[in-house]
């Protein structure tokens, strides 16, 4: 715990000094003064940043939760039953590499301009990672555990919840970490279309209004949002996957 607090502190110092160096070196108003940004940040955090952040968190969390439920289910089915995999795998392989963000206009046409299209495009991006990780995780479970489970008299429900899910959870959390970065980047882009709330919108709006201090405040808020989400994943890992650490 001490170690992690120290490394967070170190990361903050590192980012701060890089910023200060750039500020004096480039001497341009595109790099806003750290001090000014800090003052602005404390002023607008509650009235401006927080509402926008909450909108973004709501979009990301809904997308992540829906992707997890659907993606893990599909992944478990394809991992356990080769017959299902035979039909789904080609579909997944074809759709996975498509840059879904390019289809944002299509999604907006289909699902409206509001939250729904944003959440759906996030799901379209996150879910494939979850499906593939889950499927491969299920396949890598040693068959001795299935024999062990059946010898104890476990039925399919118990096998899913006592064996399959715990075994693949570490892999899923890793996949989540990777997708969190992607989701925020995608959301930043998607929030520039037809919405008036969301941290992505806030940053680009400040930019077009040439309010650089506010823009940086938005950027810091995004960084903190990511930090918060990563910490939540770390917490889940400590809580549910501590058995892995002892290996």
């Amino acid at each position: 715990m001490k170690q992690s607090k120290f490394s967070t502190f170190y990361a903050l110092v590192f980012v701060f000094f890089s910023w200060v160096i750039l500020y004096f070196w480039l001497d341009s108003n595109i790099i806003a003064s750290p001090l000014l940004v800090a003052v602005t940040f404390s002023k607008i955090l509650v009235p401006e940043l927080l509402p926008n952040l909450l909108f973004s968190i709501f979009r990301i969390l809904s997308a992540v939760i829906i992707s997890l439920v659907l993606g893990v289910s599909i992944g478990v089915l394809t991992g356990l039953y080769t017959r299902i995999d035979k039909y789904l795998a080609p579909l997944i392989y074809l759709l996975y590499p498509i840059p879904k963000i390019a289809f944002l206009p299509v999604f907006m046409l289909l699902f409206g301009l509001g939250n729904l299209s944003k959440v759906i495009i996030l799901i379209a991006i996150i879910i494939f990672q979850i499906i593939v990780t889950t499927r491969d995780g299920v396949r890598n479970i040693d068959s001795k555990y299935f024999a062990s489970a059946r010898s104890l008299g476990m039925g399919s429900k118990d096998i899913y919840f006592q064996l399959v899910l715990p075994a693949i959870l570490p892999g899923i959390l890793t996949a989540l970490r990777i997708t969190v970065g992607t989701s925020i980047a995608v959301l930043f882009f998607a929030e520039n279309f037809a919405v008036h709330y969301g941290i992505g919108y806030y940053i680009m709006n400040s930019w077009s209004m040439v309010n650089y201090p506010k823009m940086y405040c938005g950027i810091i808020a995004v960084s903190l949002l990511g930090y918060f989400l990563f910490k939540v994943i770390d917490f889940l890992e400590i809580k549910f996957c501590s058995w892995q650490k002892v290996n």
Binding site: S151, L152, M154
Partner: peptide
């Protein structure tokens, strides 16, 4: 049944492994 390499679930503590059945 005791299988060749124990077959204990690594994600469950000793206690939880025993309660499972």
């Amino acid at each position: 049944v005791i299988l060749q390499d124990y077959g204990l679930f690594p994600w469950k503590t000793v206690y939880k492994n025993l309660t499972l059945g």
